[in-house]
Amino acid sequence: MQYWLVKSEPNEYGWDDLQKKGEDIWDGIRNFQARNYLKAMKLGDPVLFYHSGKSKEVIGVAEVTEEAFPDPNDKEGKGWVAVKLKPKASLSHPINLEQIKANDLLNTMPLVKQSRLSVMPIEKIQFELIVKSSS
């Protein structure tokens, strides 16, 4: 099992949107490294959902419900992929970027080092610490 973090602007597609749908396609990724991470996601992998933009915080936990398949919006057939995600739980207390940067176990996350990347792997201990810190 691997652990992941996905990022989205809440005004474009936020945690509330995923919760309302119950399950949805995570598509539109047009970065090669992020695409490779989507391809590596496996059924049941846990995913932190991060709101970028103004709020900059981990807001919920989802899981992968369908592994990589061709992105239906890839009209040029360039090999972009998507996965399906299902929301599992909202965090009681969202964990913001400043809290992540201030924690020695979290400040090495790709979220801090590669801030423009929208899909990234994280360590199990980082996932667990964020979830635990939010309760």
Score class of each variant (00 low, 15 high):
residue 36 N to K: 01
residue 91 L to K: 13
residue 83 V to R: 04
residue 63 E to S: 08
residue 45 D to L: 08
residue 71 D to W: 10
residue 68 A to H: 08
residue 80 W to V: 06
residue 92 S to H: 10
residue 67 E to G: 05
residue 40 A to D: 10
residue 64 V to E: 09
residue 68 A to K: 07
residue 59 I to V: 15
residue 96 N to M: 07
residue 77 G to T: 13
residue 92 S to F: 06
residue 39 K to D: 05
residue 94 P to C: 11
residue 72 P to M: 08
residue 92 S to W: 02
residue 80 W to P: 00
residue 87 P to V: 03
residue 96 N to V: 10
residue 67 E to P: 08
residue 39 K to Y: 07
residue 90 S to A: 15
residue 83 V to F: 05
residue 48 L to T: 04
residue 72 P to I: 12
residue 69 F to C: 12
residue 89 A to C: 01
residue 76 E to F: 13
residue 78 K to Y: 13
residue 96 N to H: 13
residue 39 K to C: 10
residue 81 V to Y: 12
residue 91 L to G: 10
residue 80 W to T: 04
residue 57 E to V: 07
residue 76 E to G: 06
residue 68 A to P: 10
residue 34 A to L: 01
residue 90 S to W: 03
residue 58 V to R: 02
residue 95 I to S: 03
residue 85 L to W: 03
residue 69 F to E: 09
residue 37 Y to V: 10
residue 75 K to D: 13
residue 71 D to F: 10
residue 96 N to W: 07
residue 34 A to R: 00
residue 98 E to Y: 14
residue 92 S to D: 14
residue 69 F to T: 09
residue 67 E to M: 11
residue 65 T to V: 15
residue 74 D to A: 08
residue 72 P to K: 12
residue 62 A to V: 01
residue 98 E to S: 15
residue 52 S to Y: 01
residue 66 E to R: 15
residue 97 L to F: 14
residue 98 E to N: 15
residue 96 N to S: 09
residue 77 G to M: 13
residue 92 S to A: 15
residue 64 V to I: 15
residue 49 F to H: 00
residue 46 P to I: 01
residue 70 P to I: 06
residue 67 E to W: 06
residue 54 K to W: 01
residue 34 A to I: 00
residue 72 P to F: 11
residue 88 K to F: 01
residue 49 F to L: 12
residue 88 K to H: 00
residue 78 K to A: 13
residue 47 V to K: 00
residue 33 Q to F: 00
residue 80 W to Y: 14
residue 76 E to W: 08
residue 78 K to F: 13
residue 89 A to H: 05
residue 58 V to E: 02
residue 97 L to Q: 07
residue 56 K to M: 15
residue 35 R to W: 00
residue 90 S to P: 04
residue 37 Y to Q: 00
residue 94 P to A: 09
residue 43 L to H: 14
residue 84 K to M: 08
residue 92 S to L: 13
residue 84 K to W: 06
residue 93 H to I: 12
residue 83 V to K: 04
residue 97 L to E: 06
residue 91 L to A: 08
residue 90 S to Y: 04
residue 87 P to G: 01
residue 70 P to A: 15
residue 94 P to L: 12
residue 50 Y to E: 03
residue 88 K to R: 12
residue 40 A to C: 00
residue 53 G to F: 07
residue 90 S to L: 09
residue 68 A to I: 06
